[in-house]
């Protein structure tokens, strides 16, 4: 729309100021969202990489995986309904490397369908342990274990509760934690039957049973939501102030027959132009940041989630400006005619 653009060019400063604020807020939002996502990966990539499905835990465990145990009967029941079910257990523990250093890990024992299968006396570990100078074929020990666990291979990004995952065989897991029951069952896809005595969790719900996970995500997501709200209010306030200054002009334009819808479209066009330019800049910059950020900084922002957020910003801008645009529809032509003007 030509008129919208002309006005922005003529009154550059105020629109540039609004644009820069929107740019900064949207950039901040993207950075924090990227951080939330990165942290969630750093926390629970073991679970995050699992396709959407349903997790089962014992109802009595009340969401605490290490208190859950699936007995023979439970397992048979799930398996009967969904043959391709996967079972696994997780326990936090530690491994001592040959140089005598201790490393916190999350031991994962699985039936091999969801996670890599490991031979007895061996382990497959997250590659972050490589940075702690652990090498392939190195023998790792644990107080609860008589023998050694030889490092078979490393896997990329397999973490649980911020600890690197160590996949171990059932016999070794049993020796350390004295249980031959799997804690958790997982069924991919949507149809997962209810099983008596077991509680079902979605992927998100399951991740939120990790205490550190829900705490981190909740606070970061709160910030993101607040930034969205702030930017919505910013749009509303900005266009309110601009519209107040233009009441007389709106009145005259209405008097000569310009439709209210045309005036709204003009405002929306300005909102769209400002938001689009600001978002292109902030998405671009955040993607650049994702590239240059050191790997120790958990930052992860996919183009998909960046564009999702951009969409939210555009919707918010639309709502914010429309709310303040209500005054436009209230302007009476007569209000303006008797006032002075350009």
């Amino acid at each position: 729309m030509k008129m919208a653009w002309k006005e922005m060019v003529k009154f550059k400063t105020r629109y540039v100021i609004l644009g820069s604020i929107i740019f900064l807020i949207s950039l901040l939002t993207m950075i924090i969202a990227g951080l939330a996502n990165g942290l969630s990966y750093d926390n629970a990539s073991l679970i995050k990489d699992i396709p959407e499905g349903t997790f089962y835990m014992e109802a009595e465990a009340e969401g605490l995986y290490n208190f859950s145990g699936l007995n023979e009967k439970n397992r048979a029941e799930i398996k009967e309904a969904v043959p391709e079910v996967a079972f696994f257990s997780i326990q936090m523990g530690e491994l001592e490397s040959e140089d005598g250093k201790r490393h916190g890990v999350a031991f994962v024992n699985s039936d091999g369908s969801l996670f890599p299968r490991v031979k007895e006396g061996e382990t497959i570990v997250d590659d972050s342990l490589m940075e702690s100078a652990i090498k392939e074929d190195e023998g790792l020990t644990n107080r609860l274990l008589d023998g050694e666990l030889k490092v078979d291979t490393f896997v990329e990004q397999q973490k649980f509760s911020h600890s690197p995952v160590a996949f171990v065989d059932r016999a070794d897991f049993d020796e350390m934690y004295r249980t031959d029951e799997y804690q958790i069952a997982f069924v991919e896809g949507e149809d997962a039957p209810a099983v008596a005595g077991l509680e079902r969790y979605t992927n998100d719900e399951f991740m939120n049973t990790i205490p550190s996970y829900s705490a981190e995500q909740l606070s970061l997501n709160m910030i993101v939501v607040f930034l969205f709200i702030i930017s919505g209010m910013l749009f509303a306030i900005f266009f309110y102030m601009i519209n107040v200054q233009k009441i007389a002009m709106y009145g005259i334009l209405k008097a000569v027959g310009v439709k209210t819808a045309t005036l709204f479209r003009m405002m929306w066009a300005q909102m769209a132009i400002i938001t689009t330019i600001s978002l292109i800049l902030s998405v671009g910059l955040s993607q650049l940041l994702a590239l240059i950020m050191p790997s120790t900084m958990p930052f992860m922002l996919t183009a998909g989630s960046a564009s999702m957020m951009s969409l939210v910003f555009i919707i918010i801008g639309f709502v914010g400006s429309s709310v303040s645009g209500i005054q436009i529809s209230r302007v009476e032509p007569m209000q303006a005619i008797n006032q002075g003007g350009v």
Binding site: I252, K254, A255, V256, G257, V258, N338, G340
Partner: peptide, 30 residues
């Protein structure tokens, strides 16, 4: 409003021009 837009013209005590449009653009708008 449609009658005012199509059949009527208005001149007021003050010119009430749109500040960010050139003379020619004011006429185009109309």
């Amino acid at each position: 409003q449609a009658i005012r837009a199509k059949k009527f013209g208005f001149v007021f005590q003050h010119a009430h021009l749109v500040p960010f449009l050139t003379v020619q653009e004011q006429l185009e708008l109309m």
